[in-house]
Amino acid sequence: MNRAALLVLADGRFPAGGYAHSGGAEAAVKAGRLTDTASLEEFCRGRLHTSGAVAASLAAAAALGLDPGALDRAADARTPSPALRAVARRLGRQLVRAARAAWPHQRLDALVRDFPKGAHQPVVLGVAAHAAGLGPEDAAYCSAHEGVSGPATAVVRLLGLDPFEATAVLARLAPDVDRVARDAVAAAHRAAREGIDTLPARSAPLLEIGAEAHAAWPVRLFAS
């Protein structure tokens, strides 16, 4: 176990392209659903317990050593929005590049070979965590954390929200992140025993619909 590697992987400055994505926050701001600190918190909480929980489970399962190809198909099935599938693959491709430079590993090389246009980001994250000497719990934490820190950072830029308040939102969400990470690890172990179909599939309708609306805008600040 090499816990310090988790800080490197989870650092918002890890160069894997995340800064250009709002996790659906830009669409929610435009639609008037995300306007202040309180709605940011609710947005992040909803995202965390739906697509965030799915992503954390996929990441934990990949870190546990489950087949990335099967996990990638499971991620596809859990992402009905084509825009979000494309985003997940782009971010996966960007992450594998950074991860290979940081922690060269044959499982990362295999991901590049098998998915030249990128595998779903949570799957890559799990394999990267493994390459970094981390375990399923670390991968789940990293995934759950970035699933809420991304939108929070974006909303600071989109709404000019007080960055201290945005950070306080993340602090208040910490117990939820703990729960999601714990459940994700349990889900990964269950998937190892009973099959990948048992992974959670919770969805957030407005994230999926909003992602398609956002992808159709001619002009936007964030890639998603």
Binding site: R13, P15, A16, G17, G18, Y19, A20, H21, S22, R90, R93, Q94, L95, R97, A98, A154, R157, R220, L221, F222, A223
Partner: peptide, 21 residues
């Protein structure tokens, strides 16, 4: 066109992954 999340300098200097792609 690469999207930059309102931060072109991040995209060309600190996190160049989207540009490399």
């Amino acid at each position: 066109a690469v999207e930059t999340g309102a931060c072109p300098h991040t995209a060309i200097r600190d996190d160049i992954s989207a540009n490399l792609e």
